[in-house]
Simulated assay, not measured.
Amino acid sequence: MISDMPNNKASVYDDYDITDIIGEGTFSSVTLATHKRTKEKYAIKIIDKACINNSQRREMVDWEISILRRCNHPNIVEFYEVFESDEDICLVLEWVPNGDLFDRIVKEGVFTEEESRQTMMSIFSAVEYLHDRSLVHRDLKPENILVGSGGVKLADFGLSKYYEEAVGMESACGTPAYSAPEINNNQVYRKGVDMWSCGCILYFILFGKPPFYDNDEQKIYDLVSQGRWTFPKNSSEVSDDVKDMIRGLLEHDPSKRFTVKTAMAHRWITQTDSSPMPSPFIQSTPTSSTQTTPRAITLSNNGSSVKLRISNSSAPIPIKKQSLLRSSLNSSIEAFRGPLTPPFSSLEEGS
């Protein structure tokens, strides 16, 4: 049962056995825990209050709790209760055992087009749920999408916000490689920023890298601000329909960009295929019919290099430093704060 208020009387350790740290960031850690009575497994996000010692950061945490409490959708991570002590705030969340979408691509290779379609259907469904309730996520990216046994689940609502369509929002927030140009250009923006992020995610799971990538963070800002991107050389292997979907999502003009309802009605989503396809969520090794000749791309960062396989193969991905790859695909801000802490947000937050 979900608690309406923080549980200030009991400690989270009274009800849960915390066993493993499954992720760490600058401000928080995510742990695996087992409920002592029911023996059910949960994920507990432990936020160090010493690190959220200003009103803006505390407000972000309160917003995340408030929004998660109100969300009830199969493709949004479920929130159960919150404990607060003098030292920390503990959010008890649904445990999704297969990690995030970024790690799934890094470890197993890019998705087939059909697997990508299944993934985006789940993401679009969750985004539609949010947008219908005047909610914007504002930090959609592979690291904030968890891979469940039956589909993906949106997580990390620290920057999510209720908004008025007539007013819009102005705060600079998000992760540069996935943020819409109107955010980078300091313009008033609306829920279309989530659709831009969806386009970046679709590009990433198909091609193994985001459409806007550079070692120089300022260069990423410039590329996004100008909307400068191209399909990679191997894009001839995907259909014209999925390319049209990506173009619609990465439309520089937000008034012309696909809405979530337009995307869900697009022919790439609504097409039917009678042949059975392997699920990207249940089995990690593709069937022989979907295996392809291994290919790789190499990304460099400050003189070091990492290699990411971009084919469907059961062989492990040759990676020197997975954390380096994760940061190079996002920004130096990500490298500094870690993937599980509140994303970059301007100090003028208030919209």
Rank of each mutant, 00 (worst) to 15 (best):
I183D: 07
I145A: 14
S160C: 10
V136R: 03
V136E: 00
N185W: 03
D132R: 13
L130W: 02
S160T: 06
S160H: 03
L146H: 13
P176K: 08
N184A: 15
I145V: 14
K141D: 03
L140S: 03
I183A: 08
Y162C: 08
N186V: 11
L146T: 03
G150P: 00
Y162L: 02
Y129R: 08
P181I: 04
V167I: 13
A155W: 01
K161Y: 01
E143S: 15
L146K: 01
G168Q: 01
A155Q: 06
T175H: 06
D156G: 12
N144T: 06
S149W: 00
A180H: 09
D156I: 04
L146P: 09
G151E: 11
M169F: 02
P142H: 07
V152E: 02
Y162G: 06
H137T: 08
V136F: 00
G150A: 10
Y163T: 07
R138A: 13
D139Y: 01
D139P: 02
S179F: 01
T175D: 09
G168T: 05
G148K: 03
A172Q: 09
H131P: 09
Y163S: 13
E182I: 01
E164K: 12
Y178F: 15
K141T: 05
I183R: 02
E143D: 15
I145Q: 05
L159W: 00
Y129A: 10
H131G: 12
M169L: 15
L146Y: 10
D132Q: 15
R133I: 04
S160E: 04
Q187F: 07
E143N: 14
R133G: 14
N186R: 14
S149L: 13
G148Q: 07
Y162I: 00
S134N: 15
I145D: 07
I145G: 09
R133A: 14
P181C: 10
K141P: 02
E170R: 05
S149Q: 12
G148C: 08
C173F: 01
S134R: 12
G174D: 01
V152W: 01
L154D: 09
D132T: 07
G168M: 07
E165V: 12
H131N: 11
A166V: 03
D132L: 12
F157L: 10
V147L: 10
E165D: 10
E143T: 08
A177S: 15
Q187T: 02
P176V: 14
S134M: 13
P181N: 11
Y129L: 09
E182D: 12
K153N: 09
G148E: 01
V152Q: 08
A172D: 04
E165G: 11
G174F: 01
Q187M: 13
E143M: 07
S149D: 14
G148V: 06
G168L: 03
C173D: 05
A180G: 11
V152Y: 06
I183N: 05
K161H: 12
L159E: 03
Y178R: 06
E170A: 12
N184I: 14
G168F: 00
G151S: 12
S179N: 01
Y163R: 04
G148D: 12
Y163E: 03
E165M: 02
K141A: 11
P176E: 10
E170P: 01
M169A: 13
T175E: 09
S160W: 00
L130S: 06
E164V: 05
D156N: 14
L154I: 06
L130Q: 00
P181K: 04
N185S: 15
N185T: 06
